[in-house]
Design a protein around this nucleic acid. Structure first.
Lengths: 197, 197
DNA sequence: GGAGTTAATGAGTAATCGCTCATTTTTCAA
DNA sequence: TTGAAAAATGAGCGATTACTCATTAACTCC
């Protein structure tokens, strides 16, 4: 072995890609400019990724991993499904504010129409893991006895919307408003929302 | 006056743009190819739109208009805010299935990071109109007495998610699943969801 | 039918695109 | 210190990009 990688190239490339997408939008991303932003030569990019699409997808995958890790870390200290899901929900929203560029790239790729982008093994694993958390809520009797995908849609969609707003406005989300929204969402999917009280 | 417009050029361009975006994804849209798809010359595009961005935004605006019109038409025959909002909700989901390409382009532009895309007068008007429908629900006492934006997030986000899924899978959404999801969402935002019954 | 007007054309422009590869630089083992 | 091996370079490739403009085609009015 000789000449090992100097520095974390993929990470530098990831940062540069995020900056590029944030700067010029999804319809004008340029590999040459990403290289310039990273302070690397174009050739180096193509050492690590075969094509532009592969680079974008790799960054996307890393961001999804990061979001998922953030959510699971937030859930870790909690026990019951209710408080775990709550922690994950707020972690997701928080991610949009803490890493706006990352979240926006993920959203951009999510809106990507080429369907081969979406059937990835790791992405499926991540998704399944989230569904399992919800399943736990159903099993514990804190959530309505509906299919997990149904509950996921109701629970996750508003969080994603809020994260997107946070990442675009770059203003910290109003904590009270977030609590209110979570309350309403939870009212919808909880088996026994503090009713008749 | 001489030589009036032959055919509805903007409409042809709209269809071609939608097809192009659906085919190549947001990161590779080409004006020349759009012209070819529309069976028009590039020059003609630039008679109607100053830049590529202007073309994309114009199509986006038309789609948003279309979605909004579809929702309002669905609401029209209904009276109470509850049934109006329900009709609008299902109309939005249905749009994703009926016009997948249109919906996907709208989602793509929504994920656009350049913020000048988002502060448009007509878009604001459309948005306000939707908020007003929700306000009516609050005033009528069928919805919780929370800020309309809060309720909107809980109500609209899952519908958008479902519409996106419908537009990507191109399979008709499971009607029962949709009903279930709407039930949960409504449970969350209704002032008195059939409780203690 | 001819004059006037304008929509539509598409070859062409400079710039930029994604990407390659011969070359240089950096590293490690001997 | 040296030679082999791999990492990094960036000028440059052909293709494609967004966009222009001199020209042509199609229409109206007199």
């Amino acid at each position: 072995m000789a000449r090992p990688v100097a520095g974390d190239k993929p990470k530098e490339l990831r940062l540069a890609t995020l900056a590029e997408v944030a700067a010029v939008g999804s319809t004008a991303v340029s590999v040459n400019r990403i290289a310039a932003r990273a302070g690397l030569s174009v050739g180096t990019i193509y050492r690590y990724y075969k094509t532009k699409d592969e680079l974008l997808f790799a960054v996307y995958l890393e961001v999804k991993r990061d979001i998922h890790r953030t959510m699971m870390d937030a859930a870790a200290p909690h026990d019951g499904a209710a408080s775990r899901l709550r922690a994950m929900w707020f972690a997701l929203v928080g991610y949009g504010f803490d890493a706006p560029q990352d979240f926006l790239l993920a959203e951009m790729m999510n809106a990507e129409t080429r369907n081969d982008v979406h059937d990835n093994k790791e992405l499926n694993r991540i998704h399944t893991e989230v569904l399992l958390e919800i399943q736990k809520g159903v099993d514990e009797g804190v959530l309505v006895a509906y299919p997990v995908e149904t509950i996921e849609t109701v629970l996750a969609s508003p969080a994603i919307t809020l994260a997107r707003h946070a990442s675009m406005s770059k203003k910290p989300a109003d904590r009270e408003a977030l609590e209110r929204i979570f309350t309403l969402v939870w009212r919808g999917i909880a088996r026994d929302p503090e009713r008749c009280s």
